[in-house]
Computed example of a mutant assay.
Amino acid sequence: MSAPTYPIRTARLTLPGGTPAGSGGSSGGRSRGPARAPLATYRLQQTPRDRTVRTLAAWSIGSSAAIAVLSALGGLLAAATSPRTAIAVAGVLILASPLLLPRRPAVDPVPDRELAVSS
């Protein structure tokens, strides 16, 4: 005689918009801050159209690499000190990050290059 099995019920939390909680939605689990869209728009306006795909690919790879490196550094800091200290340092760095933004006058977008048409 086998042991009886009982169905396990789990609660499903749903975020506004129908996205299941914890799934990360379309962002792949990464945070998408409110400044990301204007920054992307600005960067793409400054990029010639024939380089858009390269720019987006480089940005994606660079963002993923930066997340991995900074996560590892945070883990090393937490191992060397304490998790609370590592979180405090990360919070201070996040709050100080607007100071790293460039303070330059606005520039006109780069004009598109004429693509050579072969006959």
Rank of each mutant, 00 (worst) to 15 (best):
S119K: 12
S23L: 06
R12A: 15
D50S: 12
A88G: 04
T5M: 05
A21W: 11
R30A: 15
P38N: 03
S60I: 03
L76K: 00
A86N: 03
R43T: 12
R12E: 13
A72Y: 10
Y42H: 13
A78S: 15
A37F: 09
A88Y: 08
T14C: 04
R9S: 10
P16I: 00
A35F: 12
S118V: 14
R9C: 07
W59F: 08
A72F: 06
S63M: 06
R30M: 10
A66H: 06
L99A: 15
V107F: 04
T19G: 00
V69Q: 11
R9N: 08
A80Y: 00
R54T: 08
A11I: 13
S82R: 14
R113K: 06
A11C: 08
G22K: 03
I61L: 11
S97M: 14
G22Q: 05
A11W: 01
T52I: 10
L101V: 01
T85N: 03
P20D: 04
G91K: 09
L44T: 12
D108I: 07
R103I: 13
A96L: 15
V53F: 10
Y6M: 10
T19I: 15
S60H: 10
T19R: 05
R49A: 13
L77G: 05
V117E: 14
L13P: 06
L44H: 05
I87V: 13
P38C: 06
G62W: 04
L95D: 11
Y42F: 12
A96Q: 05
T85H: 11
A72Q: 08
A40V: 08
S31F: 11
I67L: 07
T19L: 04
R36L: 11
L15F: 15
P105T: 14
Y6A: 12
